[in-house]
Each structure stands twice: as C-alpha cells, then as structure tokens.
Design a protein around this nucleic acid. Sequence first.
DNA 1: GTTAGCACTCTCATTCATCAAGTGCTAACG
DNA 2: CGTTAGCACTTGATGAATGAGAGTGCTAAC
Lengths: 353, 353
Amino acid sequence: MKMSDRKRKILQIVVDEYINTAVPVSSKSIAEKHLTDVSSATVRNELASLEELGYLTQFHTSGGRVPSPQAYRFYIEELMEKGDLSEQDLDYIERSFSGKSNDVEHLVRSVSKVISELTDYTSVGIGPHADEERIRNIALLACGEGRALLVIVTGERILRDSFIEIPDGMTNEELENASRVIAKLFEGKALSEVKDVEEEVLSEFGQYRQVMHEVIDALKSYTRPRDEDVVLTGAEKIFNHPEYDDIENVKNFLTVISSKDKLAEIIGDENDEIQINVKIGSCDDAEVPEDCSVVTATYSAGGKNLGTYGVIGPIRMDYHKVITVLENVGKALEGIIGNKQNDKNEKKDKKDE
Amino acid sequence: MKMSDRKRKILQIVVDEYINTAVPVSSKSIAEKHLTDVSSATVRNELASLEELGYLTQFHTSGGRVPSPQAYRFYIEELMEKGDLSEQDLDYIERSFSGKSNDVEHLVRSVSKVISELTDYTSVGIGPHADEERIRNIALLACGEGRALLVIVTGERILRDSFIEIPDGMTNEELENASRVIAKLFEGKALSEVKDVEEEVLSEFGQYRQVMHEVIDALKSYTRPRDEDVVLTGAEKIFNHPEYDDIENVKNFLTVISSKDKLAEIIGDENDEIQINVKIGSCDDAEVPEDCSVVTATYSAGGKNLGTYGVIGPIRMDYHKVITVLENVGKALEGIIGNKQNDKNEKKDKKDE
DNA sequence: GTTAGCACTCTCATTCATCAAGTGCTAACG
DNA sequence: CGTTAGCACTTGATGAATGAGAGTGCTAAC
C-alpha cells in the first residue's frame, strides 16, 4: 500500500500532536483542529490504514492512536518541519560558550549543561577519545617518597595524569632526566601508537625499565574511556515528562544512567559519518533501553574531535527541538574553537613574517 | 514523665522492627513476638505514653506506630545494639582497599562504592579539602601556543591542574625557568597560605606578572571544592527501599542529589570533632531534605584528612549497619594508609643510617 | 498495674453502575 | 469509489457502597 500525501499529513499531525500533549490522538481531534475539510470518519479510515502499515498503535480500542517507533523514525527523516531556535535560545548558547572554559573537562560539562537546559532532557556528554591525540608534553614530577606524578599533555588541550611508583633511591635529578628522556621519546606520538613502540622503548631502558613499564601502562590506559570522562546533566529533568510519572520507568531510567559504562556504550557507539544520530529504544540499538530514545551528535572543530553529546529521554521526544539544539551547539563550538585557532594561526603568521 | 526500662525496651523494639519491615508496628505484634509476658493492652498503654513523649507517631488511628525523628536519634545514641559486620563484609572492605588505587580521586570513588554496596544506600563522598595541604611540587608545562598547564602536587597525593594563558613569545626555556622559580616560591606552602604571600610574590615579578597572577588565581581556586570533587554512587539503590515507591519522594531525592553543590553542603558541613555524624531531615539540619537522613564520617589517617563520606537515604535507615560500615571503612583506611606511611618511614630510616 | 472485651476508626480491596471517549462497521450519499 | 453520518461496542476512569481486617482507646474487672 502506498503512502498518500494525506496519510503523510495525518501521520505528521499525529506525531506532532502526541509529542506536544502526550495524549493519544483521536480521529475527531484531527478532523476538527487540522483537517477541517474531511470528516472524522475519513480520518478514522486513514488511521486504521496507517496502523496496518505499522506507524500507529493503540493501547486500547477507545484510546486514540500513538506513534510507533517506526513512525518517529519516518517523522524525523521526512515529516518534521524544519525551523530554527528562538533568538533567546541562540543567545543562551552564544553566552554559554563565549566565556573562559579552557580545558576539555570544563568544555564537556558546559556543553552538556547547555544541551540539558535548552532541551529540557537529561544530557550526556563524553569527551573526545584520546586515542588519536598526539602527545605534546609529558613529565614526571616528584611528589614525595617513592612516587612520581605522570602528566601528559596532548594537542587537544587534554591532559591526563596518574601516579607512578619509582624505585627507592632515585633522586630528583634522575627523575628530571628520566622525565626529559621520556618526553623526547613520546612527543608527537599518538596515544594509540604507544603500544607499537613499546618493545623498542623498553629495550633501550636498562636501569629504569620498571618505571618505563609503568609509564607505558599508564599511557595505554588512557586510550580507554574512563568513568570520569562521562558527564551527566539534568537527571531530574525527566520528571518534567509525564512518562516518568510511572515509577517503573524512573527506575529503569535511573538504573541505566547510574552506570557510566552503560552510558558510554549507549552514547559512544555511533557512526562517525552521521553527524546527528537518533536511536530509538527496542528498535535501533540493543544498548538503548526500551522506552528510551537517545539523540547524539559528535562534534569537531578545526578537524579535531570534541566529543559526543546527546540527550536521553522518552521515545516521545521533541526531536525537532533536540536536533536543532544539537546542531546549533555544534555550530557555536565550531565558531568558537575555529576562531581561537585562527587567532593563533594569525599570531603565528605574524611572528613568522 | 520518666522513661522506664520497659518503655526503652518497647521503643527499641518498635524502631528495630520498623527499620526491618517498613511496616508500622502494632501493640499486638510486640506483645506476641517480643514481650510475651505482658498483654497487648499493656503494650498499648506504653505506646500511647511514648507517643505523648514525642517518640512515636501514627499515620491514622488504626495503623500501628512509627518512630519519630526524635526516636531515631535516641535509638542511635542509646538503644541501638552494637555488633560488628559479618566476616563477608569485612572481607569485602579488606579486598577493596588492598589494591592499587594510588591517588585521591580513585580513593574517593572506591570508598564511596564500598559504602554504597555494603549499606545498600546511595553514597556520597567528597575528597579532602585542599586548604591545608602543602605544596610539594608545582610546574608549568608547555602545551601549544599561548597556553601552559599548571600542575600542583600536594603532600596528600592530591593533584590538581588547570590551564594558564601565557604571553606570546614566551619560549619553552623561559617557561621552564618560570616554572622553577614558581616551584621554589611555593614549595612547602599550604594552599591556604597562598593569599598571604600574594602581594609579596607579585611585587617580585616584573615581566611575567600576568602569568604569576594567573598562577595565584588558580592556586586560590583550589581551596574551594569543585563539582568534580563530589562523587555519588548507587543512586539506583533507593529503589530497594519502599519509601521510594512513591514518585514524589524519588523526585525529591533525585533533585537533591543532582546538584553537586547541594550535596557538598549536606555532606561537608559537619563538625570535625565528631567522627560519625547523623543528620535527620527536618530535625537536625536545614540542608538535609525532609524525609531524608544523612550519615557521614570524616576520615583521616596518619594525621591527614582523607575526605568525608556518607550515605543518604530514607529516615527509616538501617543506622546500625550504616554506622558500622562507616566505622570499619575508616579503620581499614587508617590501616592501609598508616602502613604505607610506616613502610616509607622505615625505608627512610634505613637510608638515613 | 494489668488485662479482657468491645466499640470505634480508618484503610484497602471489591463490586457495581455510570460516563465519556473513541473506534469499527454499515449503509447511504454524491 | 471515496466520503460521510449514524450507531453499536469496547475500554478506562470515576465514584459510591460494601465488607473485611487491622489496630487503637477506653472501660470495667481482676
């Protein structure tokens, strides 16, 4: 059965209406409010047909219709009316990123916060994978008996750090030397390349082989995302949506978002080629819990990855708003990070003259 | 009216029973299960009297009695039966801390996790205040155009970090020099002392006054606790307790724990002299939400503060279990940290010989 | 001081009737 | 053949009535 224009129109009305009101929509309301040229009986026929096509379901015979996941997908791809954010929202984005925030952790937090505030959904963010970042500087700093702090700075203004046990009797000078040697060895390398040079590097080190071993282990550990990299904002926002008047749903939701691991899986597992990605529970992705939708975007600016962000919420989600917010945040980030880089390049150019 | 022994006994039974079952307890059940030598009518008289004294309340006339906040407090201070954790739980604590974990952030996380797992309540932890920690090492590391990473290592194996803008044209060598000078200036100082020497230090710096200014600002900022310092574990645990079958309570709870600021206030605001602190909502502390109890402990080992940890949950909380867990975690930490320090001192002593 | 007995109160689950909403179907219409 | 009016049917939601069960408070007797 083909999808007539009228069917499309009606489907769009149903989805729009349901997203706005959370109430199953009836043939009568459609005929009265949106399709005044036909009767409710006609609409009823169309609805029955859309139901047969798998786009609509009803909880019970006298309860109006509700979009199926398939309908949401179709809606997002073909039906949704485009339209930008309000001036107010755009302003808010602008103001939020114009400020200081000079390292990735803060950036991740503020991006996540902005998304949550504007969409009114719970937002998740995960910073950029460190895998492909190149090491800019690396140092071992003395910090009391038997221990040194390993600091790694990468091109992406990311830094990670951890403690390394050092042998007794290693002096501060020796440590500084080791630090310098290590810096030389790894500068310019991507974290993902560390394992390739592992053998080679270790063989060069006699005396402090053990220290080197720890350094390499630490470096390798940074290629895996850690709990701390996943930020969650606005968990309480779910109570603004009536599906979470039901305790079971809240329980489900809270259990999922309590595990940073699970969140990372849900968020992180997206296709790089698609800028904005929508996963609808029980339909697109096993990780996403039933009754939940997850919309994510992976940002980059100046060719650099800035992490993946998104919202998690009920399937009846305001996809238009969410997607528009994600798009605009992306643009804003690109603008800001882009400009900063340009500034820098200009300065550099000036210097080079 | 004085509190007879029998009243105490009955009150203890009511609180114990209610904590275990979450069901208001009746005179009949007390007489049958615990006080077989008297009749329910006698118990009833005692209950009425305890109610008059403010220890018990009832939701409705035929609903049995429930302890008041005042009763819980009395229970904790005088009635609660002492008794240690099971072998199994002690083992779990042992195993959890015997491992690697070599910096504060990991420690905070694992302590919080252990507490949440063993008590079955949501746990909050906040790392030690940096105020009084002495700076061990401080360094500025180059990391791309116009920016340097400020790394601070304190005696408490804590480290904090942030980025500093540096002037154009400052070379790596200059940076290393500045780094060394700064390290000399601040080594051994407590973070809380930084503001005292601010003027003096700034006046010594001509050329790189601006850099120094940023360094000092950063140092000062570490005396305030940051969102990242507050960790939350086991939020989903509340669903194991029937008071959170009610959506309103969940909403309340989730809203509170979503704000790290609020959490920090609730947790952090305790009296240093008391090792274990119990706050019962709407009775002890304005910060603690109505219907919630918060039990916290501030740990230290070898004279050093290790942070404040606790659980947040319903007023009908298993105080005995919670307090015992907190005590044992404290002991375990003291044991481990203490030993490590001893090891080190021994090594040092040997070297000195 | 303790107890048995009983009336009283309140909750909870069940039943029943009613109402409103919305559909599906059928028959009629243009 | 698409559209429509009309109507029977289904279902959930609401509220009143009811009875059972639990627990208390009070009184009078021990």
